[in-house]
């Protein structure tokens, strides 16, 4: 961790520097608020155009928004509960499984940045 602090962002490529906000909690917060704003706008957008109704549920204002949010939350919560039942240590199937063994070095080319 301490090593990371000493890192000089200017070593990274210009492209990577464009995304450095992802490490700054303040800027990440700003992005999240931006997301909230976009969501509100999209929800409101539902009232300004003429809908073509194929499924009756589409009559509900912001149906897609609500459905997307609720179902995704449900998905994650269900999956989390499934984990209680399904989770096993990663050596569970060892040695007849690749999960427990390192990827063979011959297939890799591990080079450090600027290394």
């Amino acid at each position: 961790m301490s090593q990371k602090r000493k890192e000089d962002p200017s070593e990274f490529s210009p492209l990577a520097r464009l995304f450095l906000w992802a490490d700054d909690p303040v800027k990440v917060n700003r992005m999240v608020y931006g997301l909230y704003a976009v969501c509100v706008l999209l929800f409101l957008a539902d009232f300004v155009y003429l809908k073509t109704i194929l499924v009756s549920a589409e009559r509900i204002p912001g149906f897609y928004a609500i459905y997307g949010f609720v179902m995704c939350a449900a998905l994650v919560i269900c999956a989390r509960m499934m984990r209680v039942v399904l989770k096993r240590p990663d050596r569970y199937y060892a040695p007849r499984d690749v999960e427990s063994e390192p990827h063979p070095a011959a297939d890799l080319d591990r080079i450090e940045h600027n290394g």
Binding site: L35, C39, L42, A45, Y64, A65, F69
Partner: peptide, 8 residues
Amino acid sequence: QLLFFSAL
């Protein structure tokens, strides 16, 4: 809408 609210 679907995608952004999923992201939300």
